[in-house]
Each structure stands twice: as structure tokens, then as C-alpha cells.
Design a protein around this nucleic acid. Sequence first.
DNA 1: AAAAGCATGAGATGAAGA
DNA 2: TCTTCATCTCATGCTTTT
Length: 427
Amino acid sequence: MGSSRCQWGEVKWTGDMEKLWYTYIGSKKKSDPLVISESEDSENDILGSTWEDESPKPTRGKKKIDFLEPKKVNKVRPMQGKMMGFGIPSLLLGRFNPVPSHMQGCPFFYFENVAGVPNNEWDTIKRHFNGVDPEFTDSKFFSATRRPRGYVHNLPVEDRSQLLCTPPMTIFEALPDTQKYWPSWDTREKLNCINTRKAPDSLCSLIRKIFRMYEGVDIPYYRQQEIVQVCKKWNLVWVGPGQAAPLEPFEIELLLGFERDHTRGCSSMTERYEALGNSFQVNTVAYHLSPLKSLYPEGITVLSLFSGIGGAEVALDKLGIHLKLVIAVEINEKLRGVLASWWKKSGQVGELKLRSDVRELTNDALSHLIDEVGRIDLVIGGSPCNNLSGNNRISRVGLCGIDSSLFFDFTRILTFVRQAMRDRGFL
DNA sequence: AAAAGCATGAGATGAAGA
DNA sequence: TCTTCATCTCATGCTTTT
């Protein structure tokens, strides 16, 4: 059942292919119309007549699929919403509680993590920041990719500004070469969230085969929907006729607001995808950090935790804020190298201090460090999200997870630094 | 040894409908 | 106001290939 004998040209649709296809779509349902469609004769499938006669029965618990042509075009979703609406925050001023007085002032702090966390962990995060509300922002308002994130900070929100160099805001603007291959029925304007893994080539060749199967005839609407579904799920773009492919690292770099080949220093493609998937979207962060420019005309001293490929540093630099001194803490040696090479390449004249592990920044170590540097103006970073991300099906256990628990080092370090600044009269 | 392929859903959100 | 339904998610661990 389901294994079809129908054949178009050289390509035969086998049971194995079908199984793989549905694995990639992510559907558990084996009673989807694909099976029905190819059980009997394939002629009707191609012509689509079967599907127009078939009245879609919205059975409970099953996924409803439109068999007919779409009646209306995609609606534009309103940009505002409730607490989790991910609007541009300046439009929502007054919605957030003010930062408690004892959390205001020097040093500023800026913490980032994924928006969709289990167990109401944002409440826990808020509690560990002494009641500072997270601000939820989606990078789709600053770039061509989605990236819904929560940011806890005590930065001023008045007089924010975006980078003068506005990034491409749509897929076609970001990837103009792909436009001529984009099927009309793939109506995406924004890419989904960049993650840490590349889509497998087997999926892309499967899509190629499907296009070859329907060579000369229209691809049925339900099949178009399936293809769009996998493209969304795996963030594929069209790089040839009927040919979808994952984003190249340099494309992700540009989408996230970095220079091309920013992560060239990584030791492998796998590592490069992983580092980029874990990174900030530079323009979004720059928007939040923009008020710092007028506050620190002489330059800024930054403690950057979980630095990764240096999204925070790049954002500050793009804002034109002079980096007097950056203490960057990053456990991956290659990524420290990426940051160091950017530091040199971008002509920084300030000092870059590299540390490897936030856990090694004990109170004693911090004390020494602060004696050495004097004053810290900004503590910034995003702690590991693997135990929080919805993509994790194995160990999505929350903040207590083996990696995500490093969050508590962020607040521990922040508390110590704030106290030290207070002791030195910098508050 | 290193890199890539492959199999693995729940849970939250928000729009639309009842 | 309540229900339904589509949509999306900074991934992990094992196996296979290079």
C-alpha cells in the first residue's frame, strides 16, 4: 500500500522515497493524501481532477490539507500582539514595566536567549535579574530571517536608531540570484530561524526528483504545499530550476549582519553552521545597543560572555562605538580565533582579552580582572540555549540542563561586577 | 579521525472560527 | 469566551561515509 508504480520519465516514486519524504516533512500521519493519491491511477493525480472532486473532510486530529487552488493570498500578519508579539519595542513603549531602581545604571547589561522556552523559564530568568522584564524582539523586523528572542537589559529605550546601512529585508533582496528560480507558489518573503545544522543533501535531491517526475505537467497543488512545507522547515532556497538547497555559510553571515567569510576561521563546515546558528542577529542587537553611542563617546569597556563569533562586538563596532577594551569569554578555541581575526581585520585599536570559560571567572578571578581593567561599562551575552530550544527533542529540560545552566554564571558574574562597580563609585 | 547522514515530536503561540 | 488548527523551534545521538 502506498508503494506506487507510477512513473514519470526516468524517476520512479518508491516506497522508500515516500517514507523519506514524510520524514523530512515531519509528519507522523501515514494517512495523508500522498498515499491515497498514488494508490490507483496516476493520470488523475497529474490532471488534478480527483482532487477537485474529493471533498476535504476535516477529520478531528488529522491534518487538514487543501486540495483545491488557494482562494486567497497570504494575509499580512499584524506586527503587534500581546506580550509575546515581537513587535519593534519602540512602538510598544509603556507596555513594559520599568527597570527596578537597583538594577539601573552602570554597568549596563544585555542578556539574550530563545523566546520559546519550556516551563515558563522566562519567569525564572526574570527572577534572577531581580525582576527585569524581558523584551521580546523578532529579527524579521531587522533582516530577512525570523529570529524570535527574549532580551533582558537595562539599556535606555528612548532614541534608539537602526544601523544606517539597512540590511536586505526580504529573501529576494538578500539572495537576488535565487529569484529567477523561485516557483510562483512559494510565497515566502522571510526565511525561518537559522539553526545549527545544514539540511541533508538527500532532501534536496528528493525535491529535484519530484520536479523531474512532474516534468511537462503542473505539479499538483497538494504537492506544491508539501514542497513549500519542507522548504520552510529546512530553510531551503531555490538555486536552480526545481533545485532547492540549504543556505551557504556566507549567505547566513550576510543575513545575520556579518561580513562575508566572517567565520572562515572555523575548522569545518559543520562547526561553521553551528557557530552561525548560535549567533546574534547583528542589526537587531545594534538597534537595542544604539543608545550607548551617545553615552560613551570616548569608547566603551565590555565584558562579553559566551561571545561565540562576536556578534556583540560587531554590533557595537557597526554602531561606531569605540571598543576601548573587550574581555571576551568563549570556550571554543576556534571561535576565539574568529573573534581575534575580526578584531585585527577590522582595525581595532583597543585591547582584546580572551578567556575560555565563564566558570573560571570566579569571584577571585573577577576581582583581579576588575582591578586590572578598572571599570566595566557593559556585560553582554547569550547563554547556551540547547536545553531550552524547541528543536531539542532529547534534552529540552530547561535552565537546569547541562549547558543552559551556564545561565546562572551570567547572573552570578553580573551581580559581582555590579557590586564591584558600586564599591568603586561608578554607579 | 572527521564529517555528513539519518531518525527522532512536544509544546507554545496566535489566528480564525464557534 | 472558548475551541480548533496550522505553524514554528540558536538540537541530540546514533550510524554511515569519506
